[in-house]
Amino acid sequence: MNIFRFAGDMTHLISIVVLLLKIYATKSCSGISLKTQELYVIVFLARYLDLFTDFISVYNTVMKLVFIGSSLAIVWCMRMHRAVKRTYDKELDTFRHYFLVLGSFVLALLLHEKFTFQEIFWAFSIYLEAVAILPQLVMLQRSGNVDNLTGQYVFFLGAYRAFYILNWIYRFFTEPHFSRWIACLSGLVQTAFYADFFYYYFISWKNNAKLQLPA
């Protein structure tokens, strides 16, 4: 474990806490893409298949349970909670995310570390996570004005993988046979998707103005 990876995990955790805070405090999920949240449930379930077979550390197991539990809780809230589901902007959340699932799975069948069930699903989860934010970013562009908590949620979510890229660079130089090219390349693509969001987020922060994404 290095400081970059720990910072990345904490930033990821913060993004989830901010989203839960928004939903529970405001009893609203306006501006949040249910499709992106559903993709994250698939990402975590596909990635943590080794939850009960490979024990790495207490921290690793606890964080996996937190990520799986929180992503399921968010989807449950947006689909089932009476007050919250009424605020879901269904007509703005129209990205056909099934293609993202299909594309990622096909890519995982072609590009993986080992042709085993667990490795295919691990690569699938890595590719899917890279594109999972797309429905949310498209929805933000459509909804124009972004409320603070939603903006902070997306910001931390984008920042966490940027920390992971620093972690991979650090491990590349400190560990002899460290190679994570699947996660690294996918992480670069994932962080690149946030580039324009980060730009507009920085502008809004600099001008102390509301976050406006060009339609």
């Binding site: 080794d50 964080m63 046979h177």
Partner: peptide, 10 residues
């Protein structure tokens, strides 16, 4: 402990 190149990351 962490096996080399196992998936020790989240």
């Amino acid at each position: 402990q962490e096996k080399p190149n196992s998936h020790d990351e989240l």
